[in-house]
């Protein structure tokens, strides 16, 4: 007598179908069908043809543009024609794949004031290179430096923060120390006061 539990276990086993045997080699008919498909290439109107067309024309929807080829009752002739036309199209089609587009910083439009500032900076740098240190007279330098301090500070306060120099190589460390020291002296500030303010203000 078998128990009900054993019967329940045995039932699904009996209901299971034997797994299909995996043959190591395809049959002759399968091989012939595969070879035939390889020789024929992509059949017009098939899903493969639609996918191929969609790749060539990314804008075209999958079921929209299928290469139009006449269906012929003779399979060999029909397969040969579309293969040649698709090969011709592939020759003319771009093979380039765009991986990335990187926008340049030059895309930012410069205001006329910025252009004038660039021109002045260039002129000053050129004069310095030629050894002309007095291109800008002291009152003009003072006015320019004062205006630059105010504009940069106002931008910083309003949240429009950006590095004050274009890069580390733009000026030397000595230049920076000389100018910072002169600015602090001009407004009667000591270096420790700057340090205190920076620590209080979290700058």
């Amino acid at each position: 007598m078998s128990s009900p539990k054993a019967a329940a276990k045995a039932a699904p086993k009996a209901a299971r179908k034997p797994a299909p045997a995996i043959s190591a080699e395809p049959s002759k008919s399968e091989k012939a069908a595969f070879l035939k498909a390889m020789m024929e290439g992509i059949k017009p109107g098939s899903l493969a043809a639609q996918k191929s067309a969609a790749k060539k024309e990314p804008g075209a929807r999958l079921l929209g543009k299928v290469p139009k080829t006449k269906a012929s009752p003779a399979p060999k002739a029909a397969a040969a024609k579309p293969a040649r036309t698709s090969a011709k199209k592939a020759e003319g089609a771009p093979k380039v794949e765009i991986l990335r587009k990187i926008s340049g910083a030059a895309g930012v439009a410069r205001t006329p004031e910025s252009e004038r500032a660039f021109a002045l900076a260039k002129e000053l740098e050129a004069a310095l290179a030629d050894g002309k240190l007095d291109l800008i007279q002291p009152p003009a330098m003072q006015a320019l430096m004062g205006a630059l301090c105010k504009v940069y500070s106002a931008n910083e306060d309003s949240g429009n923060r950006y590095p004050i120099l274009a890069g580390r190589a733009a000026v030397t460390g000595t230049d920076v120390m000389i100018v910072c020291g002169a600015l602090l002296k001009a407004v009667d500030l000591q270096v420790f006061e700057l340090g205190m303010w920076q620590s209080w203000a979290g700058r």
């Binding site: 794949e97 991986l99 587009k101 990187i102 340049g104 030059a106």
Partner: peptide
């Protein structure tokens, strides 16, 4: 090999392509 329209390239722009 066609890459892109020239009007799509602004001065300073770059494109990385695979060929």
């Amino acid at each position: 090999q066609f890459v892109s329209k020239a009007s799509e390239f602004k001065d300073g722009d770059r494109q990385i392509i695979r060929l």
